[in-house]
Simulated assay, not measured.
Amino acid sequence: MQEITRRKFIATATLATGFALAVQPISAGVITTDAKGLVAGAVKIPVKDGEIPAYRAAPATGSNFPIVLVIQEIFGVHEHIQDITRRFAKLGYLAIAPELFVRQGDVSKLSTIDQILPIVAKVPDTQVLSDLDATVDWAVKSAKGNADKLAITGFCWGGRITWLYAAHNPKVKAGVAWYGRLVGDSTDLTPKHPIDIASALKVPVLGLYGGKDTGIPLDTVNQMRDRLKSGKSKSQIIVYPDAPHAFFADYRPSYREKEAKEGWKRLLAWFKKYGV
């Protein structure tokens, strides 16, 4: 009975509308991308134990689209993450942002980070990687995606996952990790962190970090750089010296327009370089 209830919960969960409550007020400089010429909106992704909601955006016409997985911050798949998928779709990509915390709770309706963190802490890496595999399968079978042109990008929590998924799925052509945590304790839920997979990584990942990020010390970024040098993935890390954490998040006070725009250009060039 418990499993049936869980499946029903997953199947009926919905995506957030608007921005996460935990990051109010919203900045006046928020970027808004319309859906003109796109197919955009909520979809259901079949996973091992039911369904999870996701937001996808793609050109309204055509097929065989390159795929970009867009991985959320701790605040869930709210309007900012949805807007990023539309930005990719305007450039010809099929972009999908799956809601990866849905089994543990709905973070979009929580008003403080202190409420969100206990939910995020319960999310197993194995669950996330499996859900992303299922999302790729759905993209190819149900949304006209090209399995041979797969990329991933993620922000904050999603930045860490970007590194891990690039190590998990060798079919990924390129990844871009925005200020994702690199080191941490090994636990049952989080057995490995980016620094643990760096030397064995085969997929080229571009890391974009802020020099004034108080949550990700520069010494850990330098450790990651050293580990990457011992591998063969051609991965790189760029540090913007004056940027804080979440410098790409245009809806938050942490947004830095210059670094965000430059980082976005680097992302697109990185994807193009590796055939996505």
Rank of each mutant, 00 (worst) to 15 (best):
M1T: 13
I10T: 13
A11R: 07
A11H: 03
A13S: 13
L15G: 06
L15S: 06
A16P: 04
P25Y: 13
A28D: 15
I31T: 14
D34K: 05
K36P: 00
A40R: 11
P46C: 03
G50K: 08
I52S: 03
R56M: 14
A57W: 02
A58E: 10
G62R: 09
S63Q: 12
I67S: 08
I71C: 08
Q72S: 01
Q72D: 03
I74S: 00
H78D: 15
H80P: 08
I81Y: 02
D83S: 15
T85H: 02
T85N: 02
K90L: 07
L91A: 13
G92T: 09
A95Y: 04
A97Q: 12
A97W: 09
P98F: 10
Q104T: 08
D106A: 08
V107L: 02
V107H: 03
S108T: 08
S108A: 14
S108D: 01
S111Y: 01
Q115A: 11
I116E: 05
L117S: 08
P118R: 12
P118Q: 11
V123Y: 07
D125Q: 15
T126I: 02
D131S: 06
L132N: 07
T135H: 07
W138Y: 10
K141H: 08
S142F: 06
K144A: 13
G145Q: 07
D148W: 06
K149M: 13
L150N: 06
L150C: 11
F155G: 01
W157L: 13
W157A: 10
G158W: 01
G158T: 04
R160S: 09
R160M: 06
L164E: 07
A166M: 00
A167H: 10
P170R: 06
V172F: 09
V172H: 04
V176T: 12
G180I: 11
R181A: 14
L182G: 09
L182H: 10
V183I: 12
T190N: 05
P191V: 10
P194M: 09
I195R: 09
D196N: 03
D196V: 00
L201I: 01
K202R: 05
K202G: 05
V203D: 02
V203T: 15
L206T: 07
G207Y: 02
L208K: 11
G210C: 01
K212A: 09
K212S: 09
D213T: 10
T214Y: 02
D219Y: 11
T220R: 02
D226K: 14
R227L: 02
K229G: 00
K232F: 04
K234C: 03
S235P: 08
D242M: 10
A243N: 07
F248C: 00
Y251N: 14
R252V: 13
Y255I: 15
R256F: 14
K258M: 15
K261T: 15
E262P: 14
E262G: 14
G263M: 15
K265S: 15
W270P: 02
K272I: 07
K273N: 13
K273A: 14
